[in-house]
Design a protein around this nucleic acid. Structure first.
Length: 739
DNA sequence: AAGATAGTCGTTTTT
DNA sequence: CGACTATCTT
């Protein structure tokens, strides 16, 4: 068969990876070095030339989107659908395993997946039931405690408290939470991975079966795997040692979520005969941009070492703009985009990146002013919206009365006279008798414990759910969804909600109905033929469509993105920009305290991760890169003065062209205070000092001039000192030395 | 039980 | 500043 097309157009190293004989490989793939291409072609190569059945391939990706894209690309390359191959996220794959082997995993067949929101609610309730002070033991912190230990594969029994009250209390919460989950048949994200791991650890037949079946493993974004994911994949690889992992230690930006770059080193020592292949040729960015990225990341110690290079020209210098505040900064960015568009380029080729979501607002306003279309990525996802979750909770309770999480969510939504106190009663009884809240409420209706009023209210609710269940017995998913929306009163509830909000919610409900209509579980999971000819231990249980849909909603919260069909400027956080590329990129808010973020500046390890984040940002740019910062910025309502980001200082000066157009192109906003005149001019008269200039003070050391007011003897100057923060000084006595 | 108002606290995000 | 919560009022 003619297979050269699989290798055509690849460079030597890419080809080496794609056509490697079986074994274990670590592909260190720099930004823009064609790593997805390598993975796709590798799989195509295995199937097409090595006679490997798709059935024996398992590929893990970081997001559902990446999994879908990879499958599409492989299928279009091979010009045929690839059945039997598993491509998905760790969680998606774990879910699938647990659904097939729910008995071995000691789970109910229709176990419920808790997303972060469900989990937090449940933990809150656990804390209350342990009679702990919520102020002293915030649910968020407990959730972090639980999740980070699960990420490391640690159950309560594996954690030592050393008499530490903090650990001890959180451990109690963890234990109690675990019981609540088990009782309710609920599994959070971390738990899915733990269970999938334990499933194999405790069941060698099953493990052998999967080791036999998946003799070809591939893992993308390997630098983002956590401890339990690594352990799971190591276990599966078994003695086959036939695995290819692809990653880039310089793009590891999820350490705060448990990802361990160390897994890359571990791979080398753990898979003893592993080979490392470096992909260092960058096909994305022009020379200047790439060099800036290289120089920046070189400031990180302990890298595995990669030097990206490119064939392309130096290209344009990187632009640097200092706005005097965030509004000025935004207007500069928008004026650049206007210019870009006037030159005949589409908006969608421009991306504005920022460190935190809060920064998007000012940018939005600036874009709106010039009527430039934009799209903000990230933010709230479809299945995370309150109204959607509410409808899903109804659907869940109809299918499974035991779901306390669903019960709590909807028992009084829309309001039907069941208040806090009544719910507390139900909860108490449920706990006391160790039954579900649903059963507890039935008992309460029959008892005399409650006032007539609340008893009636509960009864109405019970009847509602029962009648809905009856009514929808033979309905398909979308009919069920429509009936729920209409009969529960949610429709009229949101109709009454004032403002645009209610309208938006109704729109979302309509969209949910559409989603149920088009939902096709085969697309998500791509079911295998049942018998694989080994020992038939994969018993693909028949899940109800509803359960599939609910799992889907939890696992894939719904891309808040997509729609590149419209020509919009792309706006997103640096984190969500990973894996994407744009001809024109703006990195905004490059200020110490914002980026690197205040909370990450003290600890070296975290600062390095911020630097990698900056590296990711720079390497998104193909042709043009514009860096901006603001000398003053309103954060949380109060004005702050930050010094320019240290990351800018780590980029060689000669690659950067400073843009100076203060008081020229950009008009200052109205309502200027008098001293801002000075800012517009930049120079502070009669001092030889300039705003933004670095100066030295005898006592406070190095700092940046950020503001100025008054004249002559009264003149005061504001300087933001390294370490000391910002101070107002009398200019006459300050004795500042320009640096 | 539900609505109104005062108080708190601010990363990043996928599963 | 503004989203979210805790507490107070009806």
């Amino acid at each position: 068969m003619e297979v050269s097309y699989i290798l055509d157009g690849l460079n030597d190293f890419q080809r080496q990876a794609v056509a490697a004989p079986s074994g274990s490989y670590l592909i260190l793939a720099g930004a823009g070095s064609g790593k997805t291409r390598v993975l796709v072609n590798r799989i195509a190569w295995l199937i097409q030339t090595q006679n490997i059945s798709p059935y024996s391939i398992l590929a893990v990706t970081f997001t559902n989107k990446a999994a879908a894209e990879m499958r599409t690309r492989i299928e279009s390359m091979l010009a045929m659908p690839v059945r039997g191959m598993w491509i998905g996220t760790f969680h998606g794959i774990a879910n699938r395993l647990l659904r097939s082997h729910w008995q071995e995993a000691k789970l109910p067949q229709n176990f419920q997946i808790l997303d972060a929101d469900d989990q937090l609610r449940l933990i809150k309730r656990v804390i209350i039931s342990l009679e702990l002070d919520e102020k002293k033991w915030p649910a968020r912190a407990a959730m972090y405690f639980i999740n980070s230990h699960k990420d490391q594969g640690l159950r309560p029994g594996n954690i030592e408290d050393y008499g530490d009250i903090y650990i001890k209390t959180n451990l109690d919460i963890y234990k109690s939470y675990e019981q609540a989950c088990q009782r309710g048949g609920m599994v959070d994200f971390g738990e899915m991975l733990l269970r999938a791991h334990e499933l194999w650890l405790n069941n060698s037949t099953l493990l052998k079966h999967y080791q036999n079946r998946f003799s070809n493993l591939l893992v993308d974004e390997f630098q983002d795997t956590n401890t339990i994911q690594y352990a799971w994949i190591r276990l599966l690889a078994g003695a086959n040692d036939n695995i290819m992992v692809v990653g880039d230690d310089d793009q590891s930006i999820y350490g705060w979520r448990g990802a361990k770059i160390e897994n890359i080193q571990l791979f080398g020592s753990d898979f003893s005969n592993s080979e490392t292949i470096r992909l260092e040729q960058n096909y994305r960015s022009s020379g200047n941009i790439l060099q800036a990225a290289n120089e920046l990341i070189a400031h990180n110690p302990g890298r595995l070492g990669k030097q990206l290079w490119t064939d392309s020209d130096d290209g344009e210098p990187i632009k640097l703009y200092a706005g005097y505040n965030e509004i000025d900064e935004s207007r500069y960015i928008v004026s650049c985009i206007k210019e870009w568009s006037d030159q005949g380029n589409p908006f969608k080729e421009a991306a504005i990146l920022y460190r935190s979501n809060a920064q998007s607002r000012v940018l939005e306003e600036a874009l709106l002013r010039l009527k430039i279309p934009y799209r903000i990525y990230g933010g709230q996802r479809f299945f995370e919206r309150a109204e959607i979750r509410t409808v899903l909770a109804y659907m869940r309770l109809i299918s499974n009365r035991g779901s306390d999480a669903a019960f709590e969510r909807i028992v009084n939504t829309p309001t039907r006279g069941i208040g806090d106190k009544t719910v507390q009663n139900i909860r108490q009884l449920a706990r006391h008798r160790d039954v579900s809240m649903w059963q507890a409420s039935i008992s309460l209706v029959d008892s005399t414990q409650l006032t007539n009023r609340s008893r009636n209210a509960i009864d109405v609710f019970i009847q509602l759910i029962n009648s809905l269940d009856e009514l929808t017995k033979n309905c398909d998913l979308s009919e069920l969804c429509e009936i729920v929306i209409a009969q529960t009163g949610l429709q009229s509830y949101y109709e009454k909600e004032k403002g645009e909000r209610g309208q938006a919610r109704l729109e979302n409900l309509k969209e949910l109905v559409t989603a149920t209509k088009t939902f096709d579980p085969e697309q998500i999971v791509s079911f295998d033929p049942l018998n694989d000819g080994t020992n038939g231990s994969e018993t693909a249980e028949t899940q109800t469509l509803l359960d599939d849909f609910l799992s889907h909603a939890a696992l894939e919260a719904g891309e808040g993105q997509g729609d590149l069909s419209q020509d919009c400027v792309q706006m997103m956080t640096l984190h969500s920009a990973k894996g994407l590329e744009f001809p024109l990129v703006f990195l905004s808010g490059l200020e110490d305290g914002l980026f690197p973020h205040q909370m990450s500046m003290q600890e070296p390890g975290r600062l390095e991760e911020e630097r990698r984040l900056c590296y990711v940002g720079i390497t998104r740019a193909m042709k043009k890169l514009v860096l901006t910062y603001a000398e003053s910025r309103r954060i949380n309502g109060s004005e702050t003065f930050n010094r320019v980001s240290r990351f800018i200082e780590e980029i060689p000066r000669e690659l950067i062209e400073e843009v100076r157009l203060r008081g020229n192109v950009i008009q200052p906003p109205s309502g200027l205070k008098p001293f801002k005149k000075n800012i517009l001019a930049g120079n502070i008269e009669g001092t030889g000092l300039t705003l933004g200039q670095t100066v030295m003070h005898n006592k406070f050391g190095e700092g940046v001039v950020v503001n100025y007011e008054g004249e002559g003897k009264q003149a005061r100057i504001q300087v933001n000192f390294k370490g000391e923060g910002s101070k107002w000084l009398m200019l006459a006595y300050a004795n500042l030395q320009p640096l």
